[in-house]
């Protein structure tokens, strides 16, 4: 599945680069190739290849295409690499006609899931070492369970993937991907979380007290410029609503 996706991306890149150069849009051509090489090939496909293995023939195919397309931009390094595994000269190598490739779209679902999980972890400050379980609900659940190896292998900290009919009852972090939802279980350590929230609560209460005194001071209120006064009042309202949320969470 990742193979289909990278071939599809390669074909699209090939088309964009070709058209951009013919339209004198050299920076756009380079950007597109750069995006393919760095983000798609290096960051995704090569990582997938480490998990799925036995990809050397397709890797060589992609690499050859990448070198051919990069050649007009960076001729020296591409020719040097080329001569390490080819007998002909890259400078004269015809750009291959890349066949229209399709069927790579489902890999995009996997990518989205992986990116979503990574983002959720960092937003929720989950330590990298902490392993979680992913419960998937929705139309793409089967696909994601099928590709559990990738979902677990690509720096997500996920150790197991399951599908379910509905959301689990346990405390979980929710990742929304359109109609499909992923629940990360075991991400939250109740004791630690409680301690963190209590600390946060204390902090907020202090801030609110300070601000309230300030805003009750008639001299300040009458002298401060309107926009500063407004900013301070907004700040107070924000702290108060954050405090309410934390209190709710602590009660749960």
């Amino acid at each position: 599945m990742a193979d289909k996706w990278i071939l599809q991306e390669l074909a699209m890149t090939r088309k964009t680069v070709d058209e951009s150069i013919r339209n004198f849009e050299f920076a756009a051509a380079a950007d597109s190739l750069h995006d393919f090489t760095w983000n798609k090939l290096a960051d995704w496909y090569l990582e997938v290849a480490k998990i799925e293995k036995e990809k050397s023939s397709i890797l060589i195919y992609i690499l050859k295409n990448v070198l051919i397309m990069w050649h007009p931009f960076i001729p020296y390094v591409t020719e040097t690499l080329w001569e390490s595994f080819n007998d002909d000269i890259l400078m004269m190598k015809q750009w291959p006609a890349v066949a229209e490739a399709t069927g790579g779209d489902s890999f995009a679902v996997i990518q989205e899931a992986i990116t979503g999980i990574r983002n959720a972890r960092s937003e929720n400050k989950i330590e990298p070492a902490r392993k979680v379980k992913a419960v998937v609900v929705g139309p793409n659940a089967d696909l994601l369970v099928e590709q559990a190896a990738l979902l677990c292998g690509l720096r997500t900290g996920v150790e197991a993937v399951e599908s379910a009919q509905s959301a689990p009852n346990e405390a979980a972090i929710r990742v929304v991907l359109g109609e499909t939802e992923i629940y990360l279980l075991g991400a939250v350590d109740p004791e630690k979380e409680k301690a963190r929230l209590s600390k946060e609560k204390e902090n907020l209460e202090k801030l609110i007290a300070g601000l309230s005194i300030r805003l009750e001071n008639q001299e300040f209120v009458s002298r401060a410029p309107a926009h500063i006064l407004k900013a301070e009042q907004d700040k107070l309202a924000r702290y108060q609503s954050e405090l309410a949320n934390i209190n709710d969470a602590l009660k749960a």
Partner: peptide
């Protein structure tokens, strides 16, 4: 360029 080298 180094990245491309390493990939290759």
């Amino acid at each position: 360029v180094n990245k491309l080298w390493n990939i290759s």
